[in-house]
Structures are given as C-alpha cells and as structure tokens.
Amino acid sequence: MATSLKIKNEKKLIVKSEWCKGCGICAAFCPKNVLSIENEIVKIVDIDACIKCGQCEMRCPDYAIYLGGKDDE
C-alpha cells in the first residue's frame, strides 16, 4: 500500500494542449476545481488543490490531460 501511494504522489498532471479541443468535460468533473477552460484550451489554475484522482484523464475524450511520471514530460 505504501509503495502504491508513493507512486501516486510522484505522478504529475500533464496537459498536452495541442490535442485539447476545449470541450470542458475535465474542468466540469474535476472534484477540486483544478482546471479551467481559457480560449478553448484547458489551463491548470490551481495545481496545489490537485489530489491526483485521475478523473480528468479518464474523462478526456482527446487524451490531452493525464497523470504521468517525471519522464513523461
């Protein structure tokens, strides 16, 4: 359990803005209001509030936002 928690904490929210179509699903269903849509592209507005639940990654139809490791940038 401890190791899985550690892996989760090391993950980082990454936005691939060239794939984003600005539909707004991620921002609407983010439980902590981390995201917002500005000029039809998703923006991270409050990264400190992110609990890394992965809802945005699961719900993004365009695979433009995800929790990745340090190497994924």
């Binding site: 600005g22 990654e57 139809p61 695979y63 940038e73």
Partner: peptide, 21 residues
C-alpha cells in the same frame, strides 16, 4: 508524449482524432 495506455495501445501518429469537441 502521452500517457502509457495511449502510447502502448493507440496509433499516436493518427492522433488527435477527428471526432468533434
């Protein structure tokens, strides 16, 4: 780069897909 799932199982050169926003 994209997430592991997308990288491993989708043809990334064909993305982004043509489906509507």
């Amino acid at each position: 780069m994209s997430s592991r799932l997308i990288n491993e199982y989708l043809r990334e050169d064909k993305l982004p897909h043509i489906w509507c926003p």
